[in-house]
Nucleic acid binder design. Sequence first.
DNA 1: CAGTAAACGAGACGGTACGTCTAGTCTTCGG
DNA 2: CCGAAGACTAGACGTACCGTCTCGTTTACTG
Lengths: 208, 208, 208, 208
Amino acid sequence: MSTPQAARTAKAAPTKTPDASRRSQRSRQAILDASMELVGEVGYNRLTIEAIASRAGVGKQTIYRWWSSKAAVLLDAFLSVVHDNGYDNGIPDTGDLEADLKAVLRATADEFTDAGFEAPYRALAVAGAADAELAQEFVERLQEPGLEVYIRRLRLAQEAGQIAEDLDLHLAVELLLSPFQQRWLTRSGPLTYEFTDRLVEMALRAFR
Amino acid sequence: MSTPQAARTAKAAPTKTPDASRRSQRSRQAILDASMELVGEVGYNRLTIEAIASRAGVGKQTIYRWWSSKAAVLLDAFLSVVHDNGYDNGIPDTGDLEADLKAVLRATADEFTDAGFEAPYRALAVAGAADAELAQEFVERLQEPGLEVYIRRLRLAQEAGQIAEDLDLHLAVELLLSPFQQRWLTRSGPLTYEFTDRLVEMALRAFR
Amino acid sequence: MSTPQAARTAKAAPTKTPDASRRSQRSRQAILDASMELVGEVGYNRLTIEAIASRAGVGKQTIYRWWSSKAAVLLDAFLSVVHDNGYDNGIPDTGDLEADLKAVLRATADEFTDAGFEAPYRALAVAGAADAELAQEFVERLQEPGLEVYIRRLRLAQEAGQIAEDLDLHLAVELLLSPFQQRWLTRSGPLTYEFTDRLVEMALRAFR
Amino acid sequence: MSTPQAARTAKAAPTKTPDASRRSQRSRQAILDASMELVGEVGYNRLTIEAIASRAGVGKQTIYRWWSSKAAVLLDAFLSVVHDNGYDNGIPDTGDLEADLKAVLRATADEFTDAGFEAPYRALAVAGAADAELAQEFVERLQEPGLEVYIRRLRLAQEAGQIAEDLDLHLAVELLLSPFQQRWLTRSGPLTYEFTDRLVEMALRAFR
DNA sequence: CAGTAAACGAGACGGTACGTCTAGTCTTCGG
DNA sequence: CCGAAGACTAGACGTACCGTCTCGTTTACTG
């Protein structure tokens, strides 16, 4: 931002874009932390910008300056936690695809049952479903990376000849994960191991 | 509702339960119509009870008297439209399961692309995802009946020996429909015929 | 308000004018009371609509519904106090004009030195000086009635031949009271009895 | 402000007093100019420090460093203009006191009707009425010097035996000017020549 | 067929949160 | 190392709706 070009660009675009290089990292982190805390305490609908600002010890304008909506704040907050926790170790490859997938889905079921994870994630899913603009960010930054680790595991299986070589891997992962996500989102049924195991078995039959 | 029992019940419960037999059908319908119109015009988040009341030419209290939330209003409004349109005649049975399913999913894709249908349905899905209480109603009154027609068709195929006889039909329908619903809800991809056809093919492999 | 005309008028004027007949007198009085209290405590510049609403136990909208600015609230509040206190007993007529005016001005000086009176009155004078629209109301409803009682006393003196018969009484009262008001408003000097007595004497010389 | 004394004072008070000797005269003048422009454009209430800083091409801190309030800025700005314009050459002395005063008051009425003069002067009067601290500066630096020129003229008349020799000249000037200022400040009547002439005549009767 | 009780249209009410604005302070960086 | 630039905390602004609570006014059953 201190390069000549940047300076010129800043002058050429006199829009009210704030100068990111001067952003207070202290405030940013306090806002993200407060958001995660509050969404866990009161849920998304009762989460307010005012409460976030107050809890973070920050002026409201500082939130409005850097984010366009409370959902955008929450998305950053969630991603920040996810990345801090290491996130993407990928799916283990023991050679036994079915066992690997069952293990991962069981773990995912546990995760989605944990209140600390569920509240913000559901909030984001809801906000994304309601708002097309946010949906794109939600899908790109959170959902697609999640699918990608499955695709990589399936590709290994494909190379090992365990599943059909002409299989559309992206669609395959949708077939595997969507029933899980749909059940969770609409609460149309419990996320038991029984469910996840049967789901893996049935999906795998489609992959061969 | 004008039976002696109903009258007695009303007296036995001097809580503010309104007398349904005196309900104005004129107002009820005006509210449902206004809701459907407005959700199409401004979306769910900007849909307000005040606007519905104003558009319907009705006092706010008349809405609060009979419904617990704007989502509840919308659910009734949507079901009223669905029922008026004859709703679900079931899935045709030409003997060719794959062709039948492809045809129905293509039709469903068209339906979900229609703005008049999408706006209220998405609103309900969002409200259901956010609110557990409403979710149950949403699933029971709208989603499960939708699955049921698929289950019936699969049962016929099962009896005809076209799919595995020990197949869990409910789970099977989830496998078939969830990827579709998930794509639509999160807008993670387009609902093309290409997509629905491949989906049917892949799911059917899992059913045999 | 239940006459046919009134009903028709109401329909003919769909402006957002609130229905004064349904106004809560309880809230009105609470707002006026709170305004007078607060202006005495924190002064006009730090007087906020939010604080008035909070102190009065009233929603902000109830203030905005009935008044156009905090100065308008305060004007009503001040007039309400003034009217409750009897206000206009007129100026005594002992036959001795000089003595009567000196007595009244001494009393007025005392009044303008009382903090409970000064704070809101100064606030109104300031607001009126700054805002032309409010100024008119301030002058008409508060200042002119104040002058009027002096004019009446001078007219009696005029009829008794104590002052010039062609005297412009309005201008005469301005000559008498403006130095007092100006001193008070700009704090350019103290409002002592010495000052008010000399002022009356000098003004009276101009009246003969 | 750049005299040795001033510098010493600054050092003697190691509080955050800025070093006046390093003050940018360029910024100072730009701030004063911007203040006068803006107060004429938007009035006092909508005059903001931010707007002044922006118009003057100056950081906000540069204003806060040297002035305690926007009224203080404006007072300096106004005095700077007044002094540049030569200010007060005193009241002419043709020997005819009534004619001289009438001429000056007519000229003053014209001045107070001029928008370029009125806006900042009214702003200062309002600020002074609201804020006791500023009021003192306002009176001392702007109002008293104004009265002084009248006092000097009256003293000449007194020495010439045209008015009473025991007349309190300060009070006399208040009697003459306050009705004028009061009318202007509260807009309780028009500043016509008719008004100023009658005012002079009436006041002069009190002076003899 | 009058009397009456509940639902109704209307909208004022006490509140909460919104997104914007300005005040006055604090931080960064270029000249 | 001063000053412009502007991000920061703080909090009031005026608006929009919330859900509750009267107001009269229909409306439809009951005595």
